[in-house]
Write a protein that binds this DNA or RNA. Structure first.
Lengths: 109, 109
DNA sequence: AATAAATAACGTAATATTGCAATATCACAA
DNA sequence: TTGTGATATTGCAATATTACGTTATTTATT
């Protein structure tokens, strides 16, 4: 059909899927890396660095923003992005936990 | 358009995106968890446990299989799935590395 | 006020994904 | 060989995603 039956899964499963889905596009991986490496990174610098059109970058930024991973600060006519480190940590723990638990379960018996 | 311009990103960015995209659906999170928790898990038990139709589960299994995360073993007329732990570890390192590097970069200066 | 720069929002075409019914395949049992 | 159970494949409808041209919006500069 095209839509996902989210209601048959629990909150944590949906949380894990939501976050990894957001990372699941190389443009967004690249954007996150670039923002973490460059202070005072705005939309325009991402457009130049990555090579996708401005509306496309803006759209990917919106996807990342939806998960809470981005901070924004307005300086003059620029909008600078940075990584919300609390959210980064929280997400890292969520994903790592998924890996660890999976691994531990595999190793039982 | 619908397709992804993979060629403008590097191998690692595509690798990270590929793997997280596979996890980016709650059914696949649930399937991975279930397989890790239940020895001798076959397609049918997943259909019963998760509540999606057999073709849908089969399709999700194929997506997971594509990343190399699944082992299969035939016993009689059953096909049992288990987690490829080497691949799990490799992927965990890949994703964790992404998180760590992002975090380290954020903390510079 | 007029212009320019930066970015978001809107609209749309192309493609991908999700979910399932129907069907095919494959291995075993009767 | 006929049937049965387990899984994969096919085909399709509904929805989502990706990418971008165009247009609005907002803020600074002249």
């Amino acid at each position: 059909m095209g839509f996902t039956k989210k209601h048959i899964f629990d909150a944590q499963q949906n949380q894990i899927a939501n976050f990894t889905k957001m990372i699941g596009h190389p443009a967004r991986v690249s954007i996150i890396q670039y923002i973490s490496q460059n202070k005072d990174c705005n939309c325009n610098s991402l457009v130049k660095a990555i090579g996708l059109a401005q509306p496309t970058i803006s759209q990917h930024l919106a996807e990342i923003r939806k998960t809470g991973l981005l901070n924004q600060s307005v300086k003059g006519k620029n909008l600078f992005y940075s990584i919300n480190q609390d959210k980064l940590n929280e997400s890292r723990r969520l994903i790592n936990d998924f890996f660890v638990k999976t691994q531990v379960n595999c190793s039982k018996e």
